[in-house]
Design a protein around this nucleic acid. Structure first.
Lengths: 235, 235
DNA sequence: CCCTTTATTTAAAGGAAATCAGCAAAAACG
DNA sequence: CGTTTTTGCTGATTTCCTTTAAATAAAGGG
């Protein structure tokens, strides 16, 4: 947990270890893309890397730990991609920012569907990820909010009725100092961000899982229609 | 393949076999609900039934075959539930039909999230289900269309641009005589049904996977907002 | 009562996850 | 330089799963 190195410079070992971890993730993502989430086997990754299975357990405590790390990376990468894309559009052009947001989101998901499914297909319900889920969901909503709330705290309506809004503020300050640069996002999440998220997710998820192609049609026009609809009803 | 019995009455063996299949599915669904999709093991099912593992291979050729059967059931059940719910509302009240459609869809998904995930989170992309995917997607769209297209072929816009609209009509007549009662659904799927589907799916999927509860909020108000929005822009 | 079909079992091959004991090399320390 | 510790890895083992193949019990039909 606590790093012994005083953060002056990473030792040779640390660099080597970090590189190995990177290599493990690369192989894992490759197998994930080819074989699907169930085909992800630590043994196979090790074999592909030229080492034996148990060697990987020095880097990840279990198969689930590796999957969790990949999921974390996926959320982070998705959010980062969306953020940089949106940041390329002036804050004044709300409509264009939304369009860019949707295209960035969709593009990321379509170019690496396995990672999108890894992030959103896993039933967080139940017992699987306790805190990570909150962190991930918050990061996505924060990115959307950042993208489309024009100036500052617009917040046309609020959700999160009365009960369990406790652990939210905690999490936000514990783990989310990196989010930053989003003004007026202290209270419950504004409804507009959730609306946008659910519409984007609906389209992207149906497309990624192949439902549209099963129907024999191209959903591009639907994205345009949804973007237009969202711009038309800006809260 | 071909049934020898002339369909006059099922023999004792056939009844016994059907009951066994039902029992297998029950145990499978129970384990699916408890352990998730990856925890579904033919051996465990057999053990719970008091028989040995290989005995199940008389009923399902493989684990995937069982999953496929469960997926088929899930789609059929979902569509059936939605249809009967919507049929309880007069055809004139388009807004209420849409609301009932959304609530039926959501209710079905929330009461059995494992079946919803089984149906929609399996990456059909790639090699998994060739024809079944088309059948399933069509059944969902047909049910939505049936629910909300007011009188007959409204079809405000059309998708499926030009290319691969070949196997659609074939499938529709081969396997879809049961759909029936849907007027004006010969050509490409109207955009409105896809719009409704993607919005419902976005909300339901985020809720089922626990993203909303991870945010600490109740998405009920979002459903109302989306229903109102869809009624407000009826194409 | 025999014979065919069906249901189920045992046996076994093949693979994966996870854990343990042990070995070698690099690093850290004297 | 030499010793100790940490780190990376191997091999063996355990358990569990899927799936095939062969042997056995049960049921139905002539």
């Amino acid at each position: 947990m606590a790093q012994d190195a005083p953060r002056s410079q990473p030792t040779r070992r640390e660099r080597y270890r970090a590189q190995t971890i990177r290599e493990i993730k690369e192989h894992a993502l490759r197998r994930l893309a080819e074989l699907g989430p169930d085909g992800l086997s630590l043994n196979a990754i090790a074999r592909a890397m030229g080492i034996t299975g148990p060697a990987l357990y020095r880097y990840y405590a279990s198969r689930d730990a590796l999957i969790e790390a990949l999921t974390d990376d996926a959320y982070q990468d998705l959010v980062q991609t969306v953020r940089t894309a949106v940041d390329g559009v002036p804050a004044g052009e709300a409509g264009n920012r939304l369009r860019v947001l949707m295209e960035a989101f969709r593009g990321w998901a379509l170019t690496q569907p396995h990672r999108y499914l890894l992030a959103f297909k896993t039933p967080l319900t139940g017992t699987v990820p306790p805190r990570a889920a909150t962190r991930h969901a918050n990061s996505v909503v924060a990115a959307i909010l950042c993208a489309v709330v024009p100036h500052e705290s617009d917040t046309p309506a609020r959700f999160a009725p009365e009960g369990p809004g406790v652990s939210l503020e905690q999490e936000r300050q514990e783990q989310w100092s990196t989010a930053g640069s989003c003004a007026g996002v202290d209270g419950p999440v504004p409804a507009r961000a959730l609306l946008i998220w659910s519409r984007i997710h609906g389209l992207v998820d149906l497309e990624v899982t192949g439902q549209f192609s099963a129907l024999g049609l191209d959903p591009s026009a639907l994205y345009c229609a949804e973007a237009a609809a969202l711009i038309g009803e800006p809260g």
